[in-house]
Amino acid sequence: MFKLCSETDRDPHAMSITVRYFASLREQLGASEASVSADGIRCVADVWQRAQPGRDLPPRVLAAVNHAHASLEDTVTDGDEVAFFPPVTGG
């Protein structure tokens, strides 16, 4: 017997994107982490719209994909970690 791939066999995390927020943005949104479906997501801007529907990306907010600085047009795929944060103030 062949075993068919089915929805129930699918790893639920394989089709999701982890979203993280830091610093003042985390406080404004009242959340530090979320998970959104990767279905139909192409770029960083899509991730924001799915995670924060109806809310514009605040001015000057920066993004990262898998721990690397990214632009809003950068590609996002299943299993990626996408972060949004204000300008950095270290040092």
């Binding site: 610093a23 990262a64 600085h69 950095v88 270290g90």
Partner: peptide, 10 residues
């Protein structure tokens, strides 16, 4: 570091 490293001060 000041320009790129992800630190935030409160």
């Amino acid at each position: 570091l000041k320009e790129r490293a992800t630190f935030w001060k409160q």
